[in-house]
């Protein structure tokens, strides 16, 4: 029997890929404080996905189109300083959610679909899902690598970056669209809640350990993939929903990181000062 024919094997491969992909983009989401935007995207791309599946076109395509509209809308709204961007994001979130849920409800057997939208169905990933995720991982990694310098400059110092000739709006849109690609790729497979958890928690945990972007990114990818595998194991061991147990594993990694990094930092500081005294 082919190794890929086993649903659990496919699920393990998928969580590894999704964990890495989410960790990669999560660093930027956490540093730029875009968690709410990410949450809104997961909901606002929903009607695109549903509409695509009703019409019968590729659902990733539907999600990408809906997500692009939202990402551009947010970029436009956040430029107009009079707008309360948090409220505008919230409006998109609830509007998208209601539209998507309303569309689903017109179809038969909708409660099953809605549930999997929220909490995902990682145990039923198809080989095609795996390929999509892998392609997205390569594309997103390439974009982030190629744009590392402008993204770092605009993230650190917007005014300075503009003065240095970077068009910050363009780089904002590049980042928002990249986040959007990640969300659209992973939400159908793992659900909105797990997507948000895997994007935010591992990156926030990694941030506790380092001040260097490269280290943070490497740690976030590692934490994301490990949370995925660990959660999957716990889920099959204790027979609980896989998405939920992965989310809780990622949360535990964050909680542990916060506590441990504080403890080690405190120890380093005392060691450093005691060494400084005799010298």
């Amino acid at each position: 029997m082919n190794w890929w024919d086993n649903a659990l094997h496919r699920a393990a491969a998928e969580v590894l890929l999704v964990g890495a992909l989410a960790g990669l983009i999560g660093v930027h989401v956490v540093l730029r404080r875009l968690s709410f935007f990410t949450m809104a995207l997961t909901h606002a791309t929903f009607p695109g996905v549903v509409a695509a599946s009703i019409i019968g076109v590729n659902i990733v395509l539907g999600g990408v189109i809906a997500g692009a509209i939202v990402a551009l809308g947010v970029a436009a709204l956040s430029r107009s300083r009079s707008q309360n961007a948090a409220a505008a994001t919230g409006v998109m979130l609830s509007g998208g959610f209601a539209l998507g849920a309303g569309l689903v409800a017109t179809q038969n057997g909708f409660s099953r679909d809605l549930t999997s939208f929220l909490v995902g169905s990682i145990l039923t990933v198809s080989p095609q899902d795996l390929v999509t995720t892998a392609v997205a991982l390569v594309v997103v990694a390439a974009v982030l690598l190629a744009c590392a310098r402008p993204l770092r400059y605009t993230g650190f110092d917007r005014v300075g970056a503009r003065a240095a000739g970077f068009t910050t709006v363009v780089w904002d849109v590049v980042l928002l669209l990249t986040i959007q690609v990640v969300v659209v790729t992973i939400v159908p497979a793992v659900g909105t809640i797990l997507a948000l958890a895997l994007i935010v928690a591992p990156a926030a945990a990694a941030r506790q350990w380092s001040h260097r972007l490269r280290t943070i990114t490497a740690l976030a990818v590692t934490f994301g993939a490990l949370s995925g595998l660990g959660g999957l194991y716990a889920s099959s061991r204790w027979n609980v929903a896989a998405g939920a147990s992965i989310t809780l594993t990622a949360t535990a990694v964050l909680a542990l990181s916060t506590v441990l990094s504080r403890l080690t930092n405190a120890r380093l500081r005392t060691v450093g000062s005691s060494r400084a005294v005799p010298a």
């Binding site: 875009l34 549930t115 948000l196 935010v200 928690a201 929903a241 939920a244 147990s245």
Partner: peptide
């Protein structure tokens, strides 16, 4: 310790997942 939005996201997903874990053992889950 964390940015506000990241804390909110983590609390949201973690608490919701606890609910899902509890409910996923019931038959009328969906």
């Amino acid at each position: 310790t964390l940015p506000d939005d990241a804390s909110i996201a983590v609390v949201l997903t973690a608490m919701f997942s606890i609910g899902v874990v509890l409910v996923s053992r019931r038959s009328s889950y969906t």
